[in-house]
Design a protein around this nucleic acid. Structure first.
Lengths: 159, 159
DNA sequence: GGTGAAACTTCTAATAA
DNA sequence: TTATTAGAAGTTTCACC
């Protein structure tokens, strides 16, 4: 899983698709002054290489009634139980991502819930998992997501 | 920014698009036994309502040479500086998301870097921001991302 | 609200360079 | 590797339910 070499054309294709996956290949072709067929072939190659893992919709969870975000640090009784606990945690749909971490916590996860009441339920679900000693919660008062394009540009420029 | 009422058809459309935004509307139409025109109109409405905020590619950052993930908790000298610090943090492209939080830290962010050496640079950039007292880093040894579909199903079933 | 069909646009694979 | 091409496929609009 090392680096993969993409050229300038690939970068530009990704740049146009990264925040709108439905941009027509013909538009990309026009902008890059290449043919739509070439765009097609290149995207396919990046998919086959696994660089492009997929595409996904960005939903407004606030508008869906899920405005509560928190991070939950998990302390375990024994580190050997980590795999088991991670699996149990991932069964909770309101956990969006979980990490095995160094430092204070053994496991660290992000949750999304309707409100504090609902978050309490989710945190209790985590607390109830066998092997969990205790948890520590940090509530997000405001989230600001950084533009994917900026990270991508930095990656391509390797700065 | 309250709840928005989506019916069963909308749920199913989102369900088909959530992890593959390029599924043809004709395919969705076939599966739901409605016309492609209806799918089109419904997607457009959800976009206009802001439920669908956009679409994005999922890239394999490991394959791009960026396999290092960490969370950085930030302590400030004064809470009043939070806005300023968040803005500065968001200027760093390797910070993927930043939060204002309750609990231990004033600000909490996730970073993605090439390796420990590079992560050190990123963390020092955060440390150097005016108003930052100190930081605390948790390195992710393993990340497991939960399927968006599962959260969506739970939202729709309001369980 | 939804449909179905027409007009238009885009995709995709084969061929050729 | 890339461009061209042409038929297949998808999107979008609209008159009509």
């Amino acid at each position: 899983m090392g680096k993969f070499k993409l050229d300038e054309i690939d970068h530009q294709i990704l740049d146009m698709l990264i925040d709108n996956t439905r941009v027509p290949f013909t538009d990309i072709a026009k902008k890059l002054v290449i043919s739509a067929g070439t765009v097609h072939v290149r995207v396919k190659k990046m998919e086959e290489a696994g660089i492009i893992k997929g595409s996904s919709l960005t939903l407004d969870y606030k508008k869906l009634g899920y405005s509560f975000i928190a991070y939950v640090g998990v302390f375990l009784n024994k580190t050997s139980q980590t795999k088991f606990v991670i699996e149990r945690i991932n069964e909770i749909p309101f956990v969006t991502v979980a990490h095995i971490t160094t430092g204070k916590f053994n496991v660290f996860c992000k949750i999304r819930a309707r409100n504090t009441e609902h978050a309490k339920d989710v945190i209790f679900m985590i607390d109830d998992i066998e092997g969990v000693y205790r948890t520590e919660t940090m509530i997000s008062l405001e989230e600001s997501i950084n533009d994917k394009k900026r990270l991508m540009h930095s990656i391509f420029n390797n700065m």
